[in-house]
């Protein structure tokens, strides 16, 4: 196994644990926004799409690159915007902290 591949596998395995750990305490009401947010993050494929499109030099690679960049950009832009729209609804709507009862000094 080459050094680079070994590094990649290391990142892969550690990312699995981080991914699970980081969202383990999500409350039910945030399931939909969280799903939508992770959906936007896998829009990182746009980086891959741009890498393959950059070197396009034949009809086949041009079409592949064009479609891949279009789809990936839709994913990343739509994903972040729709998540933001959802979360906008929650703005300033956190349940108010229970007012601390004023304990009269005796």
């Amino acid at each position: 196994m080459s050094n680079e591949l070994l590094n990649e596998v290391t990142f892969f395995v550690l990312s699995i644990f981080v991914g699970i750990e980081v969202i383990s305490k999500v409350p039910t009401i945030l399931h939909t926004p969280l799903m939508s947010g992770t959906n936007a993050i896998h829009g990182i494929i746009v980086v891959g799409a741009i890498v393959i499109a950059a070197g396009a030099n034949s009809p086949v690679t041009i079409i592949l690159g064009l479609v891949a960049v279009t789809l990936a950009t839709t994913n990343v832009v739509g994903g972040f915007v729709v998540t933001d729209r959802m979360l906008e609804m929650f703005k300033g709507r956190q349940s108010p902290k229970p007012a601390t009862p004023v304990t009269p000094t005796k």
Binding site: E4, E8, F11, F12, S15, I16, F17, V18, G19, I20, V22, I23, S24, V26, H31, L34, M35, T38, N39, I41, H42, I44, I45, V47, G48, V51, I52
Partner: peptide, 21 residues
Amino acid sequence: TLNNFALIVAGTLVGASGSLL
């Protein structure tokens, strides 16, 4: 495939957290 760390890390994060979700 592309030897791109950003794709590996971000994709795996989503794969793992998405499975738990």
